Simulated assay, not measured.
Amino acid sequence: MEQKIKILVLFYGYGSIVSLAKEIAKGAEEEGAEVKLRKVKEYFPQEIVEKFHIPVTSNQDIQEISLDDLRWADGLALGSPTRFGNMAGSLKIFLDSTIELWTKGELYGKPVTFFTEASTIHGGHESTILTMSTYAYHFGMIIVPIGYAIPEISSSTTGGGPYGATHLGSKPEVDEKEAKIARFQGKRLVQVSRKLKG
């Protein structure tokens, strides 16, 4: 009997980035994977959370990430909203804390894919994914883009592209095209993980 592929969907953020993470997880499950959905810790001080009305309760049902979750996974989907064209600081802090995995080569050869959201079309969708991908290069991971494999990627006027699933945050909800792209990305990650593990 074939062993189930284990996929970790890890993100920082609230609202639409959580929706994208859940769609990627759903796609991975539809492809037969066992999936863990995890978030990174919020590092904003309480006064910033209150001042800018950050909806920290919107992902309370999701467990925080541990290094063992990364060890467990056969493949990883990594997501963050864009912060000035880069990943959010909370995700960067967590990734910087994974040096123990790096020194032991524990993520070497594992496939990884990326997703993001930004408020404007040119607000950093691609650059945020590219900045997250530098982590994978240093860990020797295998980057899994989605290319133009489904028509929604080239026909979407909102989010999604060859780099990965995205959401155009000027509208509150992830639309059906964005959701379909995210589910496809989850399936693609499982397919590649299965081939590499097999």
Rank of each mutant, 00 (worst) to 15 (best):
L76K: 03
L76Y: 00
A77N: 05
L78M: 14
L78G: 01
L78A: 03
L78S: 00
L78W: 07
L78P: 12
G79K: 03
G79Q: 06
S80E: 10
P81A: 04
P81H: 05
T82D: 10
T82G: 14
T82F: 03
R83I: 07
R83W: 15
F84D: 14
F84E: 13
G85M: 06
N86C: 04
N86H: 04
M87S: 02
A88S: 14
G89W: 13
G89R: 12
G89T: 09
S90W: 00
S90M: 06
S90H: 08
S90E: 13
L91A: 11
K92T: 13
I93V: 15
I93L: 14
I93T: 15
F94S: 10
F94W: 13
L95Q: 04
L95S: 00
L95H: 00
D96N: 15
D96C: 10
S97K: 14
T98F: 06
T98A: 12
I99K: 10
I99V: 15
E100K: 10
L101P: 01
W102E: 05
W102V: 01
T103F: 11
K104T: 11
K104C: 05
G105Y: 09
L107N: 11
L107W: 03
L107E: 13
Y108C: 07
Y108P: 02
G109M: 04
K110V: 00
K110W: 00
K110S: 02
K110G: 05
P111E: 01
T113N: 05
T113P: 05
T113M: 08
F114S: 00
F114H: 03
F115R: 10
T116S: 15
T116M: 07
T116C: 14
T116I: 06
A118T: 08
S119M: 15
S119W: 14
S119C: 09
S119H: 10
S119D: 11
T120W: 05
I121C: 04
I121H: 15
I121D: 08
I121T: 11
G124T: 11
G124M: 10
E126D: 13
